[in-house]
C-alpha cells in the first residue's frame, strides 16, 4: 500500500466505524508503492464521507479530479450493475483516493457532490446522460452530450454501438427543396 494514502484510509475507518470500506487497490501491481487505492461507500453515507474527506486537514481532497460511471452488466463476479467512481485529489498532501459507489436498477440514485466540488456539475450530468444514474440534489440535471428527445443511455452495455436508428432520422434536403 502506498505510504501516503494509508493514514487516510485508517482515519476513515476510525471516523466511520459502522461502514465497511473494503479498501483495496484498483489493480494489484508489482511495485506496491504505485498502487491506486479505492474505498467503497454506500449511496446513503456518501455525503458524510465526502464532506469529511474534503474538510479534514489530514485528507484535504480539494479537487474532484474525475468522475466515471461504469456499467458492470456482464462483468465477471460483479454483484451490482452501476458503479460511480470518484477520483479525489489532494493538492496540499499530494495523494489520490478513489471512492466507489454501487447502485442498481430500477432506480439508480446517488447524492450529488456539487455542493462540495463545483467541478462535479458537468461530470454528473455526463454520467446521468450516459448511464442513467440520477444524482439527487443536482442543481441542473439535464442531458449534456446527447440531443433533445433522446431516450436511451448510450454507454449502458445493452445499448448497441450503432444505435437504434437515431442516425437515419432526418429530413432530406434535395436540390429542389433547397
Amino acid at each position: 500500500m502506498s505510504a501516503k494514502i494509508t493514514p487516510v484510509i485508517e482515519l476513515l475507518q476510525k471516523q466511520f466505524s459502522d461502514i465497511d470500506f473494503a479498501p483495496a487497490p484498483l489493480l494489484e501491481m508489482e511495485d506496491q508503492s504505485k498502487e491506486q487505492w479505492c474505498v467503497k461507500v454506500g449511496a446513503d453515507k456518501l455525503m458524510a464521507v465526502m464532506s469529511f474527506l474534503r474538510s479534514d486537514e489530514r485528507c484535504a481532497f480539494e479537487q474532484l479530479s474525475d468522475l466515471a460511471g461504469v456499467d458492470y452488466l456482464n462483468f465477471p463476479n460483479a454483484k451490482d450493475r452501476y458503479g460511480v467512481t470518484y477520483s479525489l485529489l489532494s493538492l496540499s498532501n499530494e495523494h489520490r483516493l478513489w471512492v466507489k459507489v454501487f447502485v442498481n436498477d430500477p432506480n439508480p440514485e446517488v447524492p450529488s457532490v456539487v455542493s462540495i466540488w463545483h467541478g462535479a456539475t458537468w461530470m454528473e450530468r455526463e454520467v446521468w446522460d450516459m448511464f442513467g444514474v440520477r444524482f439527487t440534489d443536482h442543481p441542473d440535471l439535464r442531458r449534456i452530450l446527447t440531443w433533445e428527445g433522446f431516450e436511451a443511455h448510450p454507454l449502458r452495455k445493452d445499448y448497441p454501438l450503432t444505435g437504434r436508428g437515431e442516425r437515419e432520422n432526418f429530413k432530406v434536403i434535395t436540390r429542389e427543396s433547397a
Binding site: P25, L26, L27, E28, C38, P76, T85, S87, R96, W98
Partner: peptide, 10 residues
Amino acid sequence: GHTPPVGEVY
C-alpha cells in the same frame, strides 16, 4: 491479442 489482468487503473 493482449490479455491484461482483471482490474481498474487510472
